[in-house]
Every structure is written in structure tokens, then in C-alpha cells.
């Protein structure tokens, strides 16, 4: 047997090209713990839905108080949703003047024409969004130019619709995120990460939703109902979807970062 000393005699290092062994990405399956999956799904949905339901009245009460303080001329009312009494405060809104509506109609029509014309230098995905925004304003201003008196909503209806929308978002976040994040069952850490993600999303949503409500209420008061369709169709649930997906991607990144160090704990082979 040769000792370590003889090893030293041939200690020259020779580099050779590392063979490329393509890992079998095509056959990967994630490690799955069905009990942890069920537990996560049930626990996350039940706990967070319970929290949402528990704090729902308090949240809208707090929002109502803040709105009343910030927006002058606000009045307070409440809306009965199932067994909840949801309070809100809102200042009186106003209808647009004919002149205002006409200006919006003109601007939105010209914008639409420009956006679909060949002179539009903007990228198509930006144009697509601008077309949508201009279209919503076109329909809204067209309505107010020709059917001003038939506008079916008041600021009170807006507040109620907003409350419903925000409640929907609150109820929706735990379900959507629990369904999509419970898939990762590599360790108990997943449960913790997923719970933090849902909690953060709900917190974000309550702050974002509250601010949005105040800005919208102020807009209806100062800049008229002509903006109301945009509030639902442009800055409504579609926008909520962005931060929900953003939190999902953040959680996914953390999951990968924390667990991909040990690939064997992460993947198994489907074939």
C-alpha cells in the first residue's frame, strides 16, 4: 500500500473537460406529501377565511372612520351583507357636466383613433392597454353625453359595490394562494412560508384597498362619476390580481431558494 507521502509525489493537477451530463428535467416530479398538502390547503383556507370574516366588520369600520376624517362632507351608512353589517363613509359624488363629458368623449375618441392608426409608434402591448383604457372612457363619456340623467348609480351604490369587491378580494386571496401554494410540500417550512405569503397579501390588500377607496371616493366627489367605470374595469379586481401573483412568485422564489440546495429533497423521477 502506498502512503500519503507517495501521493504527494504526483500532486500535479491535470484539468480535463467536465462531461456534460444533461439532467433529466423532462422526467422530474416534485416530491409530494399528500397529508401536508391536505393539511396546508385546509389549514390555510380555514384559518385565513376565519380571520377575514372575523375582521371584516372592523376593517370597514376603520376604513369608514379614516375616510370620514380625510374626506370632508362624508356621511356614514352601512350595508348588510349576509349577517355582516359593513359600515362605510363617502362624500357626495357629482355627475359630470355636459362640457366635461364632451371633452372626455373627444379625447377618448381621438386617442382610440390614434392608437389604432398606423401612425401609432407605441409597442403593441402598451397600445392594447391604452386602447382598453380609452375604450372604457369612450363608453363612459358617450353615456354621459347622451344619457346623463339615466345614470343608475349614486356614490352610495359605488360604496356598496366597492365593499363587495373588496370583500371578494379578501375571501378570494386565501383560496387562490392556498390552492396554488399548497402544491409545494417539501417540508413544514412550506406551510410557514405559505402562511406568511397569504398574511402579507391580505395585509397588502387591506392597505391598498383602503387607499384605493379613498382615492376613488375623492375622485367621484371632485372629478365626477365619469370615472366610475374605470374604477371597476381598470383599477378593480384586475389590479388586485397583480399583487396576488406577485406574492405568489415571491413565495415560489423563497421555496426554490430554501429547498433547491438539496435537489434530492425537491425532485423525484417520474420516468
Amino acid at each position: 500500500m502506498k502512503s500519503m507521502a507517495s501521493k504527494q509525489a504526483y500532486s500535479k493537477i491535470f484539468e480535463v473537460e467536465k462531461p456534460v451530463i444533461g439532467y433529466a428535467r423532462f422526467g422530474r416530479v416534485l416530491k409530494f406529501n399528500k397529508y401536508l398538502f391536505m393539511l396546508q390547503l385546509t389549514l390555510l383556507v380555514v384559518v385565513f377565511e376565519f380571520l377575514v370574516i372575523f375582521f371584516l366588520e372592523d376593517y370597514f369600520k376603520a376604513l369608514s372612520d379614516i375616510t370620514r376624517k380625510i374626506l370632508e362632507g362624508s356621511y356614514t351608512a352601512s350595508y348588510k351583507f349576509l349577517s355582516f353589517k359593513l359600515e362605510y363613509s363617502i362624500p357626495h359624488g357629482r355627475l359630470p357636466t355636459l362640457q366635461e363629458s364632451f371633452i372626455y368623449l373627444l379625447v377618448s375618441s381621438l386617442s382610440l383613433l390614434f392608437l389604432i392608426s398606423r401612425f401609432n409608434p407605441l409597442s403593441k402591448y402598451i397600445s392594447a392597454w391604452l386602447i382598453y383604457i380609452a375604450f372604457v372612457y369612450f363608453v363612459s363619456s358617450f353615456y354621459f353625453v347622451f344619457f346623463l340623467d339615466s345614470f343608475p348609480y349614486t356614490e352610495r351604490d359605488f360604496a356598496v359595490l366597492y365593499i363587495l369587491q373588496q370583500t371578494g378580494v379578501f375571501l378570494f386571496i386565501p383560496i387562490l394562494l392556498a390552492l396554488s401554494l399548497s402544491l409545494f410540500t417539501f417540508s413544514w417550512l412550506n406551510l410557514l412560508l405559505n402562511a406568511i405569503t397569504i398574511a402579507l397579501s391580505l395585509m397588502y390588500s387591506s392597505v391598498f384597498g383602503g387607499l384605493r377607496y379613498i382615492v376613488f371616493a375623492y375622485t367621484l366627489k371632485s372629478f365626477s362619476y365619469i370615472h366610475m367605470p374605470a374604477m371597476f374595469f381598470l383599477f378593480g379586481p384586475l389590479i388586485d390580481f397583480i399583487y396576488i401573483v406577485s406574492f405568489y412568485s415571491l413565495c415560489l422564489y423563497m421555496t426554490i431558494k430554501l429547498l433547491q440546495r438539496r435537489q434530492e429533497a425537491f425532485y423525484q423521477w417520474g420516468f
Binding site: 397588502y204 391598498f208 387607499l211 379613498i214 382615492v215 406577485s246 406574492f247
Partner: peptide, 23 residues
């Protein structure tokens, strides 16, 4: 526009843009 509303509007825009930051 009262300052507080302006502040709230700015904060709202900030929160709207924040989810795009990692992207």
C-alpha cells in the same frame, strides 16, 4: 387638492407599482 389626498394618491400609486419591482 388637499395635501393629505395627494399623499394618499401617491401612496396608492406606489403600492400599485410595488408588485412589479421584483419583476
Amino acid at each position: 387638492m388637499p395635501k393629505v389626498i395627494l399623499l394618499i394618491a401617491l401612496f396608492f400609486i406606489l403600492l400599485f407599482l410595488l408588485p412589479f419591482v421584483p419583476s
